[in-house]
Amino acid sequence: MERVNELKAVRKESIRSDWKVGAASILNALEKISLRVNQFLAVIAGLAMLLIALLIVANVIIRVFYVPIPGVGEISGWLSAITAAFALGYTQIHRGHVDIDVILEKFPARIRGPIQGLMLFISMLFFGLISYRLAIYAYETMKSGGLSETLAVIYYPYIYLLAIGFFGLALSLLTDSLKYLIRRDRR
């Protein structure tokens, strides 16, 4: 009977170990995907920022000799939104956001960790919901045929791009949450 109990304990520990190994490998894969997606989005954000600078400089130069480029404010506004949204996930991965944890520091370390993990998870849900709602809004704008005010062009693709940017942030927050749960990482 004693031997049976030992075998059960070994099997139980083996299952627990197998679960941790499997979860860790899934987390590593998710981490790589999140990093690649957000690096790609960050490159696009950088290109959008460069395009804004070139557009504004070209507008200033052309304004001296001719009339300004129509819709520069509208185009630079769209590109600025894309720049900001596409950089969010990359910034989260590299801990570039301002982290205000004055209240959190007052808690004991054993409580601080779970609260921080919960905050990451809630943030992931929030930004995932923003991404989802932006996609719905883009679809509704596409169906209604909405046009921009100055240039009178369709603008729903830009809303879809914003949804993609917030999805990148939600993906990086999901990865951070799982890192906390599986590896017990601390920020």
Rank of each mutant, 00 (worst) to 15 (best):
I75N: 03
I182A: 07
E2G: 15
L41E: 09
Y137G: 08
A58S: 15
Q116N: 13
L171V: 10
A135M: 10
P157W: 01
K32H: 05
E13D: 14
G145E: 06
A85F: 11
I182P: 06
L79R: 05
L118H: 02
P68Q: 13
P114C: 11
I164Q: 03
Y132C: 13
A48H: 00
S17M: 08
I115G: 04
M142A: 13
I26V: 11
S17R: 12
R36S: 03
L147E: 15
Y160A: 00
W19L: 14
I69Y: 12
G165Y: 09
L174H: 02
E2V: 06
Y158A: 03
G73T: 07
A58Q: 05
G146Y: 04
V72T: 15
H94A: 00
V60C: 10
D101C: 02
I93P: 02
A81M: 13
L171E: 06
I159V: 15
P70T: 12
M142V: 00
S172G: 10
L50E: 08
Y160G: 03
Y160H: 03
Q39Y: 10
A152G: 00
A29Y: 02
L79G: 01
L104M: 14
D99G: 01
S34E: 08
A42T: 01
R110A: 05
I69H: 10
A135I: 01
